[in-house]
Nucleic acid binder design. Structure first.
Length: 860
RNA sequence: GGGCGUUUAGCUCAGUUGGGAGAGCGCUUCCCUUACAAGGAAGAGGUCGGCGGUUCGAGCCCGUCAACGCCCACCA
């Protein structure tokens, strides 16, 4: 075995072995209770980023641990076709060759995308393997594979039949660059400094006019009315009158509508039904015409001098023309939020068009109830509020997209006006027998994602997997897609499966840099997990992420943490090396603990048992940071710093060697098991050295038996620490031999202590008596040790050392006495708390007496 | 405008029924002791954002203020 941990070499070794052994398939644990996670499907165009690394690590910890605990654990992998994103990527590739998708046509373009997917779509899977993710590749899915496409079609048709999907002419968010509608949630708003333009519209009868304000001056070309508040005294007489729209010359009415806020601007609003969602509704209320003035590229099409200008050019030209016409009042700076396409950042245009919608109200109510009832629990709980709030305020979901890559909407139209929505492609019109043509649009990518928890298990077929693994046990995902994805999976899962798709929803935070900043390419602070893997290894990255990951909190990550985790790996490596050089027999893979262990062996086994129980509790509540922090400290401090050192003399002692080997082997074995979900490669490698046969990934989770805690071992440790402190204070070399005379009222000193003290503190133990002048006193439990000072020390430094200990005890005593002197404390506090306080005070008093005497004698 | 979160050691953060302020990294001193110097030992460092309240007792509960961050909203 090498002397140094080399993560890169090890990490090449094990993944295929796990896959070949079938460990990742739930069939590996026949008869096990089911446990299922579906992966949040990454985009086929995607490359692994640090957020994936965190997410995959957490899921892998969950799944590997459950598998070791005997569950039939399934983690379903797969990718998302990512409609707009993927189409954009392929379009960009084609553009390099000077090809537009319309040049080659729909079928050829879609073929190109499939070709792209065949060539590059597996990249993300390779990266997921590199992370060590224990997914079952035999069950891999793609949102556009045959089965999932069938599920999408079934859902669409059924929702249509239930009147929960409809087609309508509405104002939707339009991306003029992607040339498609977007859902409300796909628009990202940002505050920007724009302008507020005030324009006066004259009355048709020439009696003055009304001044309105807008941030989008060009939309005035499509105005078909002006609205005021019905109670606004300023305009009460104007309602019903007719205005003459400048530049256009259209006659438009003044209407009264509650929507208008009299406090804002002039209290009069121009109404553009075809280019603003509020105006569309207002227009509908008052029977105003919707005049469309732009095309799908946001280029002006209204007849007139502005034709062919894009919306931003038109904005300037319209203002100039208004100024020339004397209708422009003021142009002021104005901060407002502007919507952008979440895929390409282009400013979104409200656009009137014919689209497909999902009626969400009937779907949201049960989805809210499932969380309220506790069928599904968010971790941490506070996300439930956001979830409720969002669900309660949802508007109908626009699901049609004017792109080519995706699930084509299964609707056919006939010239006779018939609309056919069907599971099978129709040959001809059911009404008139005429020719039909299919809807050109595809579905929102999130439509298929919403079905992921059951479509990946075979739905709509009633498969064995579906029966076994639905509902999924837990979903691990970032808070940023709760609305996009989680909320919709809840809706669809409950609607089609009758049951919420998950028991737990573990929400992860964002990975940030060491200063807590968001990772971004422009700041240059982003960490590429694959670079980290190549330089330091995947295991150190995983451990670093886990140690920083508190539930729902953002995760700060610095390369220093990864390096620290790697150092831990080296520590573990060398700890095992020590074990191997002393354990000349196989360690039993499961179970196998010494019966009736003593001394240090009992101590470490008791600590192991206690730690394992707490570790399990922490993991069960998704507190991985705490769980692995606990295990990490146990391993480094208690196991390696204390127990391994204490084991060395025991391994040389014929009386204890057998028991010590058993103990050391058992503890090292269990530590590897406990760490395996976090750092699978390293632990598997070490397991192969320590145990020999079988894969750790398929081993059983440890259940160390309870062991009575041997308190006297901590007294020994206290004495060792006391001696070390004494040496450190006085600059006495760790190697310089010392003799400690012991007074041992409880007879806790065992003969094996002598070797321990020699090894751990270079101390010879001697039976002694209460000493005063010329000695220093070490206290541990009821045990006292005396070291003769002659020629050893600087008296002042020793006085300072004792004084410091005294100060600490005095502070404790003062605090305790304060409490105990308070009648309301002794009366009202629980009896055990009071009793504890009394003992604390008594111990402090005793220690003070001894130390004070010592201090006096030191001066004398 | 509404909602949520954060504020604890130089840095990043734990601290879950209110009962002796913690970890990692960094820093100081000593030590190459036969698993590991990518190591070991000892140590310094905090009025737990401010104010007020409840309580025998508050980092933790309540109120309030402040700073920072995030989400939502039909800001013409």
């Amino acid at each position: 075995m090498e002397a140094t941990y080399n993560p890169i070499a090890i990490e090449k070794r094990w993944y295929e072995a796990w896959v070949e052994a079938g460990v990742f398939a739930p069939e590996y644990r026949p008869g096990g209770e089911p446990f299922c996670i579906v992966i949040p499907p990454p985009n086929v165009t995607g490359a692994l980023h640090i957020g994936h690394a965190l997410n995959l690590t957490i899921q892998d910890v969950l799944v590997r641990r459950k598998r070791m605990q005997g569950f039939a654990a399934l983690w379903v992998p797969g990718t998302d076709h990512a409609g707009i994103a993927t189409q954009n990527v392929v379009e960009r590739d084609l553009a390099v060759e000077g090809i537009d998708r319309h040049d080659i046509g729909r079928q050829a373009f879609v073929d190109q995308v499939w070709e792209w997917k065949r060539r590059y779509g597996n990249r993300i899977n390779t990266q997921i393997r590199r992370m060590g993710a224990s997914v079952d590749w035999g069950r891999e899915r793609f949102t556009m594979d045959e089965g999932l496409s069938k599920a999408v079609r079934e859902v669409f048709v059924r929702l249509y039949e239930e009147d929960l999907i409809y087609r309508g002419n509405r104002i939707i968010n339009w991306c003029p660059r992607c040339h498609t509608a977007l859902a409300d949630i796909e628009v990202e708003y940002e505050d920007e400094i724009g302008e507020l333009v005030s324009i006066t519209y004259p009355f048709a009868d020439g009696s003055g006019g009304i001044t309105v304000a807008t941030t989008r001056a060009e939309t005035m070309l499509g105005d078909t009315g002006v609205a005021v508040h019905p109670d606004d005294a300023r305009y009460i007489d104007s309602v019903g009158k007719t205005l003459l729209l400048p530049l256009v010359g259209r006659e438009i009415p003044v209407v009264a509508d509650e929507f208008v806020d009299p406090e804002f601007g002039t209290g009069a609003v121009k109404v553009t039904p075809a280019h603003d969602p509020n105006d569309f509704e207002m227009g509908a209320r008052h029977g105003l015409e919707a005049v469309t003035i732009m095309d799908e590229g946001a280029v002006i099409t209204a007849a007139g001098p502005f034709d062919g200008l894009n919306r931003f050019e038109a904005r300037i030209a319209v203002k100039e023309a208004l100024a020339a016409a004397g209708a422009l009042e003021t142009v002021e700076e104005h901060e407002h939020s502007v919507g952008h396409c979440y895929r390409c950042r282009t400013v979104v245009e409200p656009y009137l068009s014919l689209q497909w919608f999902v009626k969400v109200k009937p779907l949201t109510e049960p989805a809210i109830q499932a969380v309220k009832d506790g069928a599904t629990t968010f971790v941490p709980r506070r996300w439930e509020n956001s979830y409720f709030h969002w669900m309660e305020n949802l508007r109908d979901w626009c699901i049609s997209r004017q792109i080519w890559w995706g699930h084509r909407i299964p609707a056919w139209y006939c010239d006779c006006g018939a609309v056919i929505v069907a599971r099978e492609d129709p040959e001809s019109c059911a009404e008139c027998g005429g020719a039909v043509h299919q809807d050109e649009d595809v579905l929102d990518t999130w439509f298929s994602s919403a079905l992921w928890p059951f479509s990946t298990l075979g739905w709509p077929e009633q498969t064995a997997d579906l029966a076994t693994f639905y509902p999924n046990s837990v979903l691990v995902t970032g808070f940023d897609i709760i609305y996009f994805w989680v909320a919709r999976m809840m809706q669809m899962g409950i609607h089609f499966m009758g049951e919420a798709p998950f028991t737990d929803l573990a929400i992860t935070g964002l990975v940030r840099d060491a200063e807590g900043r968001k990772m971004s390419k422009s700041i240059g602070n982003s960490i590429d997990p694959l670079d980290v893997a190549d330089e330091h290894g995947v295991d150190p990255l995983r451990l670093a992420l886990l140690q920083a990951a508190s539930p729902g909190q953002d995760v700060p990550l610095d390369m220093e943490w990864v390096i620290a985790a790697r150092r831990f790996g080296n520590k573990l490596w060398n700890g095992l090396r020590f074990g191997l050089s002393n354990l000349d027999g196989a360690v039993p893979p499961d179970g196998g603990y010494p019966t009736a262990p003593e001394g240090a062996n009992a101590w470490i086994l008791a600590r192991l048992s206690d730690m394992t129980h707490r570790f399990d509790e922490l993991c069960d509540s998704y507190r991985f940071s705490d769980a692995f922090g606990l295990l990490y400290n146990f391993t480094w401090s208690e196991l390696f710093d204390w127990y391994v050192e204490m084991s060395k003399p025991l391994l040389r002692d014929p009386r204890y060697v057998a028991e010590t080997k058993q103990t050391l082997g058992a503890v090292l074995r269990d530590v590897l098991k406990l760490f395996h979900p976090a750092i699978p490669f390293l632990t598997e490698e070490l397991w192969s050295e320590l145990v020999g046969d079988g894969l750790l990934a398929g081993a059983a989770w440890p259940q160390p038996p309870a062991v009575a805690f041997p308190g006297h071992v901590e007294i020994l440790q206290g004495l060792v620490t006391g001696v070390r402190q004494f040496r450190s204070t006085h600059g006495i070399s760790p190697r310089q031999p010392l003799t400690v005379e012991i007074v041992d009222p409880d007879a806790v000193v065992a003969d094996w202590w002598h070797e321990q003290l020699e090894a751990l503190a270079a101390v010879t133990l001697a039976a002694g008596e209460e000493r005063g002048s010329g000695y220093t006193r070490l206290m541990s439990g009821n045990l006292q040790g005396f070291i003769r000072l002659a020629g050893l020390i600087d008296v002042d430094a020793e006085a300072a050392r004792i004084q410091k200990a005294l100060d600490a005890h005095h502070a404790t005593l003062a605090k305790s006495k304060g409490k105990l002197g308070n009648a309301s404390f002794t009366d009202q506090a629980p009896q055990e708390v009071v009793e504890k306080e009394r003992m604390k005070a008594a111990e402090a008093e005793e220690a003070i007496a001894k130390l004070e005497r010592q201090l006096g004698e030191l001066g004398a």
